[in-house]
């Protein structure tokens, strides 16, 4: 029983992290039809930046803030320089971002080396809390990540469905000419979306750098996680990402905990099974 609850908690908190990671990807795609396959590399870059800030200043919150902001700026630059011109060519954009991920991966290797790092948890958040019914206590920080993910999810959903900005964004995607005619600068809206999506991945990278160690290869791992999440949940939908994160996180952890040698295959089999019945993902729309 202890093991079951423990594994479930692991799965849930990991699902929270996966949600943070994949939400930026799906936000940008859902609103702009641009898929960023350098997503894993962005995640890792944010990890390095926040780690270095925390290492120099001893201020964890500053590290997370700068990690998220610098990625926002970096992502916007990538969008402006490399992607904007081809924004309506989905495949070409996806391929360019794959090229970006290659360069980033090697660049980070050259600058930060192949060692693994992990950002220290701030002192007052580093204790473990006892879980009723089981004997082992559980790290408080991991539970906070889960709550953080839930807050971000609700925030994003409210932003897109309930605010004027959300309405402009949704309208701008569906009918660029119409929204422009209303005097709204659609290009600027797109830049802001890309910025926001990149901030989200930067935030996820800074948080993830605290819960798990990171280093060379982490980019590929998290690209795979986010692909699994959005493929299962359905690309472009916040709810889909939530469901996808839950399934990949929880089932993945039970697989690792109970059938470690088959863990990779179990997640993969789940993905195939879901796609055989719903090729667009659980909440994805057919386009």
């Amino acid at each position: 029983m202890t093991r079951f609850i423990f594994t479930l908690l692991n799965g849930l908190t990991l699902a929270g992290l996966y949600f943070l990671v994949a939400s930026g990807l799906t936000l940008i795609f859902g609103l702009m039809r641009v898929i960023n396959l350098a997503h894993g590399a962005f995640y890792l870059l944010a990890g390095y930046i926040s780690w270095n800030v925390v290492d120099k200043t001893d201020n964890w919150f500053l590290g997370v803030l700068l990690g998220a902001l610098s990625l926002g700026i970096f992502g916007t630059l990538v969008y402006l320089i490399l992607l904007r011109k081809f924004q309506y060519e989905e495949l070409r954009v996806a391929l360019i971002t794959l090229g970006v991920s290659l360069i980033l991966a090697q660049g980070m290797l050259a600058v930060f080396g192949g060692e693994y790092y992990q950002t220290s948890i701030p002192e007052n958040l580093s204790q473990s809390i006892p879980i009723p019914g089981i004997e082992i206590s559980y790290p408080l920080f991991r539970i906070l990540v889960l709550f953080l993910a839930i807050i971000v999810a609700i925030g994003l959903w409210l932003f897109i469905t309930r605010t004027r900005y959300g309405a402009i964004i949704r309208a701008g995607v569906d009918d660029t000419a119409m929204v422009s005619a209303l005097g709204i600068n659609v290009q600027a809206v797109f830049i802001w979306i890309f910025f926001l999506g990149s901030v989200l991945i930067g935030f996820a990278g800074s948080i993830g750098a605290t819960t798990n160690s990171f280093g060379m290869g982490t980019d590929g791992d998290y690209l795979l996680f986010s692909l699994q999440v959005v493929i299962i949940g359905g690309l472009g939908s916040i709810g889909g990402v939530a469901i996808g994160s839950f399934l990949v996180g929880v089932i993945g952890q039970f697989a690792v905990g109970y059938y470690p040698t088959l863990s990779g295959v179990i997640t993969f089999a789940m993905l195939v099974l879901i796609l055989a019945f719903r090729p667009q993902g659980i909440l994805g729309k057919i386009r």
């Binding site: 093991r3 423990f6 594994t7 692991n10 990991l14 819960t211 791992d221 690792v256 905990g257 470690p260």
Partner: peptide, 17 residues
């Protein structure tokens, strides 16, 4: 005995098991 893949980042489930 547990044999997680080289480069595994999250050992929490193994620790639980």
């Amino acid at each position: 005995a547990q044999w997680p893949a080289l480069g595994t980042k999250d050992y929490s489930s193994q620790i639980a098991a």
